[in-house]
């Protein structure tokens, strides 16, 4: 076992220890692991099963139910573009093209440097300021091609201070 994996396992145990072991703790545990590691891998599922006693199949069933929980490793920044009607009518398709062109990946993919993942999401409640997207925990509305590039640059240029912190609305 490499040092890196060892450290990840310890971190996982630290995350688990914050929660109870009841079935009602399952979703909060999974949400937290997903936030912390960006995804929930098989090893984490097994550890959660050991911790809570919930069989791995059921945990996997819960993970695959929720669109924000994933088993696939995502980028450091997950861009979730809203594709529901108000954003769609406000020019979502143009934003799709800009994001794909600027990042050089298609939706469903992650950049080679592991920085960005592109995903669609359903209505994020930003319909009054469309088109809109979430980047990790932060919502961005009123997107234009220029603004999208600005936002992406701000992530590329600065060391994004608080990857796991809570964002806000811009």
């Amino acid at each position: 076992m490499t040092a890196g994996i060892r450290a990840a396992t310890d971190e996982l145990q630290d995350v688990l220890r914050k929660f109870g072991k009841n079935r009602t703790d399952l979703l909060p545990i999974l949400v937290e692991i997903n936030r912390y590691f960006g995804h929930i891998d098989s090893n984490s599922i097994i550890e959660v099963s050991r911790y809570t006693g919930v069989p791995i199949g059921e945990i996997h069933g819960v993970i695959t139910f929720y669109s924000f929980l994933g088993q696939k490793k995502r980028g450091r920044f997950v861009i979730r573009l809203c594709r529901t009607i108000s954003c769609d009518m406000a020019g979502k398709d143009q934003i799709v093209r800009v994001l794909e062109k600027e990042l050089g990946i298609c939706f469903g993919e992650t950049t080679d440097d592991g920085m960005f993942s592109l995903e669609y999401t359903n209505c994020i409640g930003m319909c009054n300021n469309p088109p809109a997207m979430l980047i990790n925990d932060k919502a961005y509305g009123g997107l234009t091609p220029e603004r999208v590039v600005e936002i992406l640059d701000s992530f590329k240029l600065s060391e994004y201070q608080d990857m796991f912190g809570y964002g806000g609305v811009e």
Binding site: P55, I56, G57, E58, H60, G61, T64, F65, Y66
Partner: peptide, 19 residues
């Protein structure tokens, strides 16, 4: 025994083995 699970959501729902 829990060898089986319900995976995914909506029209993609599958009854499958664990993982």
């Amino acid at each position: 025994v829990s060898a089986l699970e319900t995976a995914n959501r909506g029209h993609d729902v599958l009854i499958q083995t664990a993982f």
